[in-house]
Each structure stands twice: as structure tokens, then as C-alpha cells.
Design a protein around this nucleic acid. Sequence first.
DNA 1: CAGCATCCAGCCCGATACTG
DNA 2: CAGTATCGGGCTGGATGCTG
Lengths: 135, 135
Amino acid sequence: MFAEHTSDPDPAPGSTLHPCKSWPDNGRGVRETLDRIGDKWSVLVIGILSQGPLRFGTLHQRVPGVSQRMLTLTLRHLERDGIVSRTAYAEVPPRVEYELTPLGESLRETVLALARWVTDHHDEIETARHRYDTR
Amino acid sequence: MFAEHTSDPDPAPGSTLHPCKSWPDNGRGVRETLDRIGDKWSVLVIGILSQGPLRFGTLHQRVPGVSQRMLTLTLRHLERDGIVSRTAYAEVPPRVEYELTPLGESLRETVLALARWVTDHHDEIETARHRYDTR
DNA sequence: CAGCATCCAGCCCGATACTG
DNA sequence: CAGTATCGGGCTGGATGCTG
């Protein structure tokens, strides 16, 4: 559509051994989904829910920075995408439980790997930032 | 600090077998780093750069939706975090190459796994969205 | 308890124009 | 070629108040 680079003599030495030179769909669909995963709270929520079903309030406590509004929105989005399921129990004090769907389960390992990487390398990144800022 | 839930009798049946009940640092540091990974373009850029070093213009073509401004900002952020390195060659037409640092390399598999998940499950998500919207 | 509605500040990010 | 500078609209996301 756009960015149809005609000649591409970019040197990029010794590594054309890859599944995708650029992104398959020019970021059309990938972007939309990535925006959901990559939004401010989804990864955290999925990470917590990967431990098992939780009700709204508990979730709210477990993801401390999140506001009620954003937790609601995040859950709605994830629900829409089929990543979490919502179950409301008709009881005297209303109770609602959220849990990962099978689709969400398939994201588990990836998200946990990401979370692990972030915590593992947090110090390195802090150091790099400091070096960059004071250079 | 906040959200110090006193009693937590949440049922969450049969799965307390996990490394972290909630996020280790209450999202303090994790959030900052996650915001970098999770921002609009980082994952795409890292994915492309995982194929080898590239110069600015080529990168700009390979990540089609991105504007020049956002590509610059994304690269600066990733550089600051020590995930990509920038090398400028003093030549007649300026040439600048970006490539993953060792730290960036360590993110490779995780990011590619995420990208793979997104493309693999794109259809399922589309379907789920449609069902949700028309229900 | 769970959550929607409203208001509003701040930033994200694209478009455009200009520089070394 | 590889940026920087500036402007402005739209969306993100927090605070607050109200409902079932």
C-alpha cells in the first residue's frame, strides 16, 4: 500500500536467514492486537490471572497502581478479545470472577516470560538509563 | 504502601502454587520497563532488529505504519535503556546503523514469541471481538 | 461489591516544516 | 540521509460521584 520500497540494497551483512524480513501484514492486524497486549495494564492483569481465577476486588488489590476505571476497561477489552472470561454470580453481595480462557492460557507462558525478563533485567536497564542520562 | 489488603480470604480454588501472588514491587519498577516494551512501536522495532543491524531509512520502511518522529523517539528510548545501540558513520551521505545490544539480544526470543503469538491467534481474536460486539 | 458516567489534565503521536 | 522543532487533535487514564 505505502512504503513499497523499490530497491533495497541495504547491506545488513550476513543475516537474511529469517522468517520475516518485515512484518507480514504491514502492521495492520498485528498492531491492533499488540496494542491490546501492550497497553498499560494488560500484561500485569494477565500475569496475575495466570495464577487462577480472581474476583474484581482482589484483582484490584493485586495490581496496585491500577484505578478502578482502568481495571474495568482492561478487563472488558481482554474479555472482548476472548482472553479472559467474566462470571457473575447472582448473590446478595454481588460477586464476579475473572479467569483466563483457553486462549488466555495460551498467552500465559509468553507473558510470564516477558514479566520474568523485565524483573530479571531491571537493574541493567536502570544502569543503562543512568549512563545515558549523565553522559 | 497502598492497597495493603489485610485479610484475603479470596477463594481462588486450587492454585496457590505460584512464584508471585502479586507483583513483586507493586509495579514500581516493572511498570516503567513494561511501558517501554509495551509502547506502540518497541516490539515491532525489536522484532525487525532481531534480524540484524539496519540503518534508519530501512527500519523506517520495515515498520511501515511508523512516522519518522516516532521511530526516532522509539530508537532513542531503546538506546537509553541499553536495548539497541546506535552507530553513526561520518560519511558523505550520513549513515547510521542500529542494532540490538547483548541486552537487546536477550529480549529477542521473548519478543519474537510474543509476535508469533499475536500473528498465530489473530484470527481467533478477530472472531472473539466480532462475537462480543454482536452479542 | 462491582461498575458505569462524567469531567478533565496530560501525553501520545501524526503532520508538517526546517537543518547538518 | 537522518534527523530536530513545533503545532495540535485525539486518546489515555486518574478522580470523583452515583447505581444495582
